[in-house]
Design a protein around this nucleic acid. Structure first.
Length: 546
RNA sequence: GGCCCCAUGGUCAAGCGGUUAAGACACCACCCUUUCACGGUGGUAUCAUGGGUUCAAAUCCCGUUGGGGUCACCA
């Protein structure tokens, strides 16, 4: 077989030699230990937590080392392309404060452009041609039907599936056969002629897993599809080489294709980048755990966190605690320091699959929210409401003065102690509802209607909005005492049987009457914010509840 | 099923041959308190298993078991 002639037939015309590309995409001029990392999503428009997880690691590694993080779009699969997906990815990551130094739709140093794989077709073809000329790649005319029949046969025989060794029919086609099929205009793909032996294992140093055993590849994988577009594997080798990636941090699910990548880099004559395979995010599903799934788990979608109104930093902090085991301790000690100051280390990344724990995220979210200033809180909630809130909620911001007072109270802003009731913006907005709307439904009173009415009536008789908090509470105690409730908790605890209940129960009734809820922040302040008229109306409504 | 990866409480985990086996989340109890939240104090709970190596093993080695990933003209 004349490989050169075949290459010429398959890829007619002049293609630049490898040296051309080596010069066109020269090694990057960066400090000695700077890492070049990347994110290489396919433009499906769906960006998920796993992407963010890996993105944060890549971003930290690049920027902490004085290197570069770039965005490359793996748009080699036409079927998966969605309009606006790239912008969506950039926007979603921006929300979590991940910024790229260069890449698709971002620009930056144009030396390594373009960042869309479809625009790099010439490079892939140049190297595919070269591989064919070297006899390291060949055209394969097998149809999808033949391939799936082969797979079925292999499965039935309990053999390893795939296109390899004796099953690689087209690898040994005679020159006549090849040209006959070509002349007949049959569609074909270009496959790698693998020289590996999976019985041979080699030791490989993974940046996160440590030393691992990798078998050699023996699959004659497709490198160019029948439409002339490269497969992921081929594009990966060429792009990461010429974009001068130094460290590929990617999900663990890629570990299985590492043998292919190793063979590809080697036959192309490229040095291998370093790899770090990051554990996947798992979810408990009944008895077992599994990878978070797009279909079953809404919390996989980044959009979920925006819709719920998680404070972005909280998600990032949580990801960081999962990513680097010593982050949490550092953060506890340095709650005010910028996250960028934490010295993120690839070696500290976890080897085992991590169960995604919403409880933990929620806890972090509460405390992140509690660190915001009044302005930040207000701005965050307003922004969230404008995008995701109900019309009623949008209206709350029309009464800005009240809104600020309500927030100050409910979140403890300005007080000595911040409250940590809220996980998300949506929760916070729902909670402050009673400042703006009268309760339609009330939590049940824990007393008879007659009792409640009598107590509320007494309260109304003594209620004076001019009272300060102490006087106000003294009056509540007096009302309590007048109806057989203990005015002092100590008295009540000493002898519960002697009373109808305690002042706490009376306060609860008032609280339910005014807000509809049994649990709220300081009631006196709420009444001050609502104003006398509103308080009287609500208590009135609260009385005739049965 | 073949191959690869992984294995410390319910969860995330520290640990790197000698520790009373950290810490955080969750949970429970108590304290603070007019409710809730916050905060404080205390508590329950972990080295999957069997063999080695060693004076000494959560830590090193092998097997077993369990879990996960992957086996496309998808990435």
């Amino acid at each position: 077989m004349d490989h050169r002639a075949l290459a010429e037939r398959l890829f007619p015309g002049e293609y630049p030699p490898p040296e051309f590309y080596e010069q066109k995409y020269p090694p990057r001029d960066l400090p000695p230990h700077a890492e070049v990392t990347r994110l290489a999503p396919s433009p499906t428009g769906f960006i998920h937590l796993g992407n963010l997880f890996v993105a944060i690691a890549n971003e930290r590694i690049a920027h902490l080392s004085g290197g570069v993080l770039y965005l490359r779009i793996e748009d080699t699969d036409e079927k998966r392309k969605v309009d606006g997906a790239v912008e969506a990815v950039i926007k979603a990551l921006e929300y979590f404060d991940i910024s790229f130094d260069e890449g698709a739709e971002i620009g930056g140093d144009e030396t390594y452009a373009p960042w869309y794989q479809r625009q790099r077709a010439e490079i892939y073809r140049a190297f595919a041609k070269r591989l064919v000329a070297q006899g390291r790649a060949y055209p394969c005319f097998c149809t999808e039907e033949e391939l799936s029949a082969l797979r079925e046969r292999q499965t039935a025989n309990k053999e390893i599936t795939g296109y390899y060794g004796k099953y690689a029919k087209c690898r040994d086609l005679s020159e006549e056969e090849v040209y006959a099929k070509l002349d007949a205009g049959l569609p074909y793909v270009i496959r790698l002629r693998s020289e590996g032996d999976p019985e041979k294992k080699r030791k490989f140093r993974d940046a996160v897993k440590g030393e691992i055993a990798v078998p050699e590849n023996d699959q004659d994988i497709v490198i160019l599809k029948s439409d002339g577009i490269p497969t992921y594997h081929f594009a990966h080798a060429i792009d990461d080489h010429f974009m001068r990636t130094t460290l590929v941090i990617r999900g663990e699910e890629w570990l299985a294709s590492l043998p292919i990548h190793i063979e590809l880099f080697e036959t192309l004559g490229f040095p291998l980048p370093r790899y770090g395979h990051n554990c996947s995010l798992m979810k408990q599903d009944g008895e077992t755990r599994r990878k978070l799934s797009k279909r079953k788990d809404p919390e996989l979608s980044l959009e979920f966190y925006r819709k719920e109104g998680y404070y972005p930093r909280a998600v990032k902090v949580y990801m960081l605690t999962l990513l680097n085991s010593d982050f949490e301790e550092w953060y506890l000690k340095n709650p005010e320091r910028p996250l960028e100051e934490f010295s993120f280390k690839v070696g500290k990344m976890s080897k085992s699959g991590t169960l995604f724990d919403l409880d933990k995220l929620n806890d972090i979210s509460k405390s992140e929210l509690s660190k915001l200033t009044e302005e930040e809180t207000f701005a965050f909630l307003k922004e969230w409401t404008e995008e995701f809130g109900s019309d009623a909620q949008k209206g709350y911001f029309g009464e800005e003065e009240k809104m600020r007072k309500a927030l100050a109270l409910c979140m403890g802003i300005g007080g000595k102690k911040r409250r940590k009731d809220f996980v998300t913006a949506s929760q916070a907005m729902r909670f402050i509802e009673y400042f703006f709307e009268r309760p339609v439904r009330r939590e049940p009173y824990r007393a008879t209607a007659a009792c409640v009415n009598a107590l509320l009536t007494s309260f109304l008789q003594t209620y004076d909005p001019a009272d300060d908090a102490q006087v106000w509470f003294a009056k509540v105690k007096a009302v309590a005492a007048a109806h057989g409730y203990a005015a002092e908790m100590k008295d009540y605890k000493a002898d519960p049987a002697a009373y109808m209940g305690s002042v706490a129960d009376v306060a609860e009734m008032l609280r339910i009457a005014v807000t509809g809820r049994a649990n709220t922040p300081d009631l006196w302040t709420i009444m001050q914010i609502l104003g006398e008229e509103e308080v009287r109306i609500r208590i009135g409504e609260g009385m005739n509840h049965e």
